[in-house]
Design a protein around this nucleic acid. Structure first.
Lengths: 329, 329
DNA sequence: GTGAAAGCGCTAACAG
DNA sequence: CTGTTAGCGCTTTCAC
């Protein structure tokens, strides 16, 4: 390579990487030769030599889901600044795939991992393995049951507190809450709603407390159908995901319930909320920032020697008021 | 490493990689030792030694855009099967970023590139560089002005031919077409519409031929507003992207034009079409399959020695009829 | 069948 | 300030 420039490999290396002492003159000579030969620095060789791969892994369910693709973008942006590479692993919440990915990441000697996936046994073992090898693991809106080094989440309680308060301030008292069974986030969101209702001295009507199977549109539709067919109808509804809210919207349309005239509706996630009809009032989760935060945490851990205690970044979740909510007349 | 298992590195390598001749007995010994020591195969070392990086690059505008995130997923899925790694490069259509990414990909010695970006000068130079180094470049729904090895596109003409025919069969004759200036895809889509109209012996009314600045919602809204304010109104409209269609939908709502009663609307892309109100009749672009196809082309090029002539994969684009179109009464 | 040895392209002591 | 040298962990001839 550029040793054809009249110097040794070592000097060339120093000149290119601009470390150590190199006379300006020889430095220029090296640079000139590099350009002339169209030299391309070989990252692979450097990786092997330094046993730093400048690569991290990201485990997620599916990048096709906009919630995650925004996190990905956040991670990628800071990784790019740090000249790191990120290996994206879509596990589709599948154990087999997860296992294959984890092995792959190990073989690739990633320096750190971020995950946004729900709990599973393989992941749990993975965390142990990584911890043993002192590879930092960051939880970004993923399962809290795994032993991550650091975690970034949203202030789910606050966001939903705001959502509930918004409805209460509009005069609503019969507020239905569409939660999700066995979900940590759902529980925290509910806690926010509960507090708001308490602060306003409003009792929760158990008939308006609905538990869906999951966060999907279908579940939302199903539960809304049931709810709307009962004699006692709510005047407002908070759904704990955007998909759930869309399901509710569909059911409402079918049953001739007008939003917001007959029912004020609030969602969570804010992916396409603005494009819906009516534009959906909803709690926005700062996913892009979450990705950035997770990556920042990871890199700071990769850089520091001493293992500091676990940190937690809690991102603010805010309510955005659009046209799906209005005052009780 | 596992040479603690009593054999030489060479034998261990052979045993692990299952090539060459290795006695079954020693092979088992190696495997056992590997398991015992929790041996992890080092991909980086292998990459350096074989100067094959099992890594490809993907250049796209922004992964946050669902159109691209689906292509990404397609690419990743086949890359994973091939045990390849993909470096995702969000260039935001920015020249500076593109340049940095290209250099990075070169330093990482990627074995191939896929791009889905519009034309720019840096990209053009990049293609030359890669071609010189015999690194295959695949165009997946990106600019055709670059000298890619192979290309995957959609049969834009056919999809839009179907769209126009659908409207014509419903009895529409005053059909507006919302195109995009200086866009190759837009031109091809228009060609499809034109043919359908011709086949039905319908003249194109130049007043209903609208050229937007780009594929964005804002542009759609803007042009629709202008169109709706003119005395001559169309009874149907084809918008060449989903975002454009959403813009039209917003404008229609504001101007009291009911879809589909007063205006039948067709979009292209089919990302959230189903979730809109009314659910949008639209041409679906098989983005996930496009990603898979692009990756398959790339890998077949990486594998084969002789450089075969450029290939082109044309994916079928189909119309999905929903509720935003109806017959002329 | 298996081992010895070279070398992928780089960095990091260590000498000079 | 610069050159020599060793070696990261693997694959791959070439001997034995």
């Amino acid at each position: 390579m550029a040793r054809e420039a009249g110097v040794s490999v070592a000097t060339a290396s120093r000149a290119l990487a601009r470390y150590g002492y190199v006379k300006e003159e020889t430095r220029e000579k090296v640079l000139a030769a590099a350009k002339k030969l169209n030299y391309q620095y070989n990252v692979v060789a450097k990786n092997l030599r330094t046993s730093k791969t400048t690569t991290i892994g990201y485990l997620l369910p599916d990048i096709t889901n906009p919630f995650y693709s925004r996190i990905v973008r956040g991670i990628q942006d800071v990784a790019f600044e740090e000249e790191y590479n990120v290996i994206i692993c879509n596990n589709d919440n599948d154990i087999i795939k997860t296992e294959r990915f984890v092995k792959m990441l190990l073989r690739h000697r990633v320096e750190g991992i971020i995950y946004s996936t729900p709990y599973n046994q393989v992941l749990n073992d993975m965390c142990d393995t990584f911890k043993k090898q002192e590879i930092p693991v960051i939880n970004c809106y993923g399962s809290t049951r795994l032993c991550a080094s650091d975690v970034v989440t949203g202030d789910a309680e606050k966001g939903c507190y705001q959502a509930a308060r918004h409805l209460l301030e509009l005069g609503h008292r019969r507020i239905a809450i569409l939660r999700v069974k066995e979900s940590g986030v759902s529980n925290r969101r509910f806690e926010g709603c509960r507090k708001a209702l308490e602060d306003f001295g409003v009792e929760i009507d158990p008939r308006f407390l609905v538990d869906a199977e999951d966060f999907s549109q279908e579940s939302g539709y199903l539960q809304a159908k049931i709810l709307f067919s009962s004699p006692q109808k709510p005047t407002a509804l908070i759904a704990f995901s955007e998909q759930l809210a869309i399901g509710v919207l569909k059911a409402a349309r079918e049953d001739g319930i007008k939003v917001p005239e007959d029912l004020s509706l609030v969602g969570v996630d804010d992916i396409i909320a603005e494009l819906l009809e009516p534009p959906l009032t909803s709690v926005v989760i700062p996913t892009y920032e979450a990705g950035r935060a997770a990556a920042s945490l990871l890199f700071s851990r990769i850089k520091e020697e001493n293992s500091s205690p676990p940190r937690e970044v809690v991102l603010e979740e805010k309510l955005v008021v659009r046209k799906s909510t209005r005052g009780r007349v």
